[in-house]
Every structure is written in C-alpha cells, then in structure tokens.
C-alpha cells in the first residue's frame, strides 16, 4: 500500500487523503482494520459519490473505476481516471498536483 506508507507526505503538504469504495459499510470496515489505513475510508454503497465524479461503472463492473481527484474548496485541480483495475497514478504524480 504505497498510499498508506506515504501518507505522511500528504500530511506534510496539509492535505488529507479520503478513500472511497462502492461497497457496504461492513466491507470497508473490514478493509480499514485489515490494512490499518491512517486515512478515512468511506462506504459509497449507493454509488452517489462515484456518480457525481463520473467514475461509476466506467469499467462496466458496477463499481467505481480507480480514480484520484485533487480537490480544494475552489474546485477540482487535477484528476486521473484509470482505464483498468491496476491503472492508477503514483504517489509522486499525485503530490505534484497538490497546491
């Protein structure tokens, strides 16, 4: 878990990581305790957030496509939407787009 191991880099930049999955609260509970994530993991069982960000069912699996959005209260600074399960940006790439 590169994201977990490098969480401190995000904190040092004053940013919070918020993870979500189209899954039940019980399912994310299990993952959260299994990996010991230092950041919040949210359950989006009705995929409202995934739809609002345009990532729901992009891969045709009824789930959220792997995606990263860098946000401030003023807007979306950067986004990356994966084309397959393993397609996600590196932590360094995400950090480059933080304000």
């Amino acid at each position: 878990m590169e994201l977990r191991d490098r969480y401190g880099d995000f904190q040092a930049r004053g940013a919070e990581v918020v993870a979500l999955a189209v899954a039940s609260r019980e399912a994310v509970d299990g993952v959260w305790s299994a990996i010991g994530a230092p950041y919040p993991i949210l359950a989006d069982p009705e995929h409202r957030a995934a739809e609002a960000y345009g990532v729901y069912n992009r891969l045709g699996d009824g789930l959220a496509a792997p995606a990263v959005f860098v946000l401030t209260k003023d807007g979306i600074l950067w986004s990356y939407v994966g084309q397959h399960s393993a397609d996600r940006p590196s932590v360094d790439e995400i950090l480059r787009h933080l304000p």
Binding site: E16, L20, I41, F69, I94
Partner: peptide, 29 residues
Amino acid sequence: LERAGGGTLTLSEQLAQGPVVLVFFQRCG
C-alpha cells in the same frame, strides 16, 4: 458518507481544512 470505524465524513467540511486527495478504489480489498 459513512466512514469505516464509525461516524460520517462530509467532503465540504474536510475541504474547509485544506486540500483533499479523493481516491476511488475499485475493489474493497
């Protein structure tokens, strides 16, 4: 949304404190 471990998180409240990196996971595990 509900967060693992209990409670809820509202994105706008989190953004009031600073930038947020929103990470969508395809699979929960």
